[in-house]
Nucleic acid binder design. Structure first.
Lengths: 146, 146
DNA sequence: ACCATTAGGACTAAAATGGTCCACTATGCT
DNA sequence: AGCATAGTGGACCATTTTAGTCCTAATGGT
């Protein structure tokens, strides 16, 4: 169910590693070595994370990447969005859908609500928490009644 | 993020349609017509839902499918699991993972916690709620602290 | 007997994913 | 100035997943 891509997972590992020394510059190579991930893959991920604003990059010799914000200010959604793109749970939630049922279905709308519920839950989980034997926020889904 | 497959969405539509008359038998063909989904696809989905125990099936002439349980007893996770299989958020959460990082990563474990949080949230959303302009449970993630 | 209907697969086409590589640009060091 | 080190951007490919189709049983009502 609800698979998260491997790359996102790897991305988290990278960020988690960097979170141990926020502010410090890490080269792609170093991260690849430390995390045991393939160098080209790491490079690709760092680019994506940089583009998304999660990392600051310094080019040239002795360059590298550093967390752009404090670990506590980087959420799980940020990471997922950065790597997988802001895809939604269902097709119809993306906006540019060509759903031919739509009219009578009425279900799509509800999935979207659930989707946004999950998003906000994931927003509450930060990199700081992901790195330690954390206390995971529990999904309750009880509120949001309107 | 966290994509749900189209088929799962279709499956929900089918179930939602059937939920309007719980207990009644619907043939695959009828459902295909009513939901505007391709007949072969509908057939495939109904088989999957049947196998998962969400639907009871009656073979032979005038046969069809009927909800196996009351709409309020069929949850969103049930549907997702039935169609997509009980896949987990991350690779390492599946059990048979060949994660080479594992040791130092420590992140995987946390994703699993989040995963189970989402699962239980999704378990709280039933087909009955999915069919109407429902009140979606809100994901809070605040508890589960241990 | 016959027809409607589910059951169980095999199979295909298209798309997404994971992963690699290269040519280019920026920056520090000597 | 020149070289080595790093990020940037994008093309590219192989593999896997996904969506979707179809065919051949099995089953049960009429």
């Amino acid at each position: 169910m609800l698979r998260m891509s491997k790359l996102t997972d790897y991305g988290t590992v990278l960020l988690a590693y960097m979170a141990r020394e926020p502010g410090r510059l890490f080269s792609a190579q170093e991260l690849a070595e430390r995390t045991q991930l393939a160098a080209p893959t790491v490079a690709k991920l760092l680019k994506a994370l940089g583009k998304a604003g999660l990392l600051d990059s310094q080019r040239g010799a002795r360059g590298g990447y550093a967390l752009a914000r404090a670990p506590a200010d980087i959420s799980a959604v940020d990471i997922i969005d950065a790597i997988e793109g802001p895809v939604a749970l269902t097709e119809c939630a993306t906006g540019h859908s060509t759903c031919n049922i739509e009219a009578g279905c009425g279900v799509g709308h509800n999935w979207q609500r659930i989707n946004s519920g999950i998003r906000s839950a994931l927003k509450a989980v930060t990199l700081a928490e992901l790195t330690r034997p954390m206390a995971v926020p529990l999904i309750d889904l009880r509120a949001q009644r309107r």
